[in-house]
Design a protein around this nucleic acid. Structure first.
Lengths: 215, 215
DNA sequence: TAGATTGTTAATCGATTAACAATC
DNA sequence: TAGATTGTTAATCGATTAACAATC
């Protein structure tokens, strides 16, 4: 029943996958499951699933299993999905638009409250329910609207400058789609990188090597 | 000097980051480095860097360090970036277009040879140097052009059916942007997931919990 | 040769798996 | 009560770090 002080990042990184899977089950009307059942369907060991769920206080029931809706709620609480956090998006190019349109911010705990671009031709254009705002107004926005995170969808060579400015304005969290590594320059910033190239390189390795080894 | 039989995935996943960083150094004209130097600039330990580089045969020089261009070439070889692999993209919506336009396929070992969509209104439209082709021709394409990987940029509810068909045609590798988990249904397939939601949930956790703990 | 830095072995740390008593 | 399944402790496995002899 006791919560662990430090839940390790390895556990946290598995939670979204549990959440995704359990939400699906819930949608299908299933109400209970067990570590054994989940292990067969998700490919983790039952032992690991129990360890994971127990990091944040045992809410299973011996001899019975876990309640799916309750598991969903608990994971929402742990991940902070139940608390809305404001975020802004910098760069309304191809990538920025796709993210603004594609990512269901509300259901992962965020609210997108501003889209900024330095290109005057784009300013004013509507994306979803947002009008693109001029980049130079981002500083006022940070001060007044107090977003907690910026999504970086800008070209490689402007990232450095932009992050420096946003950081100076007090923004310390970034969802980084550029290939510029912020983490060394701002070790206290919270950064989550989505480096598509890196993901492709890993895939390239698997294709070339794992596939070759099988033969 | 001996290559390890099994390079672990933890090492492989660091290689793209080394590659990215070393390419940058190379572009700036730097020609040599050491594990100590890299450790200070990249935030890994020097020990780990030496261990990592040694997984694939020692090509450093005692008392001197490593040659940056050689390191780049070696990592290219290990990751298979030096071997071009054909891939196709399914789904030319917002997301698909962005990926087609945004990802430098050639420089990570891939060649995008076909973009497919089932929406007739999109068919024929040009993206980069590719015309969007009708989805029903993908099966012939796989047989004739023999791509080794498909990039999945289709809505959630059509992924299952599409993967089933592509798999039947002999395609066993996927770069998966949908939220449908292929890995359980096709355990022998090589899958690299880019689940933006999962990435956001992890970020949400960091924001809510790590930040709170600091205070 | 002296200094630097690798390659490699040994020690530590953390994460996963196995086992089982507690209990619904 | 008997069966099932959790919560938790112990054992194993793997990855990271430290140390140092080899050698450029």
């Amino acid at each position: 029943m006791q919560k662990k002080e430090n839940v390790s990042m390895s556990v946290i990184r598995r939670l979204p996958r549990y959440y995704r899977f359990l939400s699906e089950l819930k949608k299908n009307g299933e109400t209970r499951t067990s570590s054994k059942d989940l292990s067969e369907r998700m490919g983790f060991t039952a032992s690991q699933i129990r360890q994971d769920f127990n990091c944040f206080g045992g809410f299973g029931q011996q001899g019975y299993g876990y309640s799916i809706p309750q598991l969903c709620i608990e994971i929402e609480k742990i991940l902070g999905i139940d608390k809305t956090k404001k975020c802004i998006l910098i760069g309304a190019g191809n990538l920025g638009r796709t993210i603004a349109a594609h990512v269901p911010f509300a259901s992962v705990g965020f609210q997108l409250t501003g889209i900024f671009d330095s290109n005057d031709d784009l300013v004013g254009e509507e994306i979803g329910d947002q009008a693109i705002r001029p980049y130079h107004t981002v500083h006022d926005c940070i001060r007044q609207e107090k977003p907690v995170m910026a999504i970086l969808c800008v070209p490689r060579d402007s990232v450095e400058e932009i992050v420096k400015a946003l950081y100076a304005d007090g923004l310390k969290s970034f969802w980084n789609f550029s290939h510029y590594d912020i983490s060394m320059d701002y070790p206290d910033a919270i950064v989550e990188n989505v480096h598509l190239n890196d993901s492709m390189m890993t895939l390239s390795y698997k294709l070339t090597n794992i596939a070759a080894k099988k033969e």
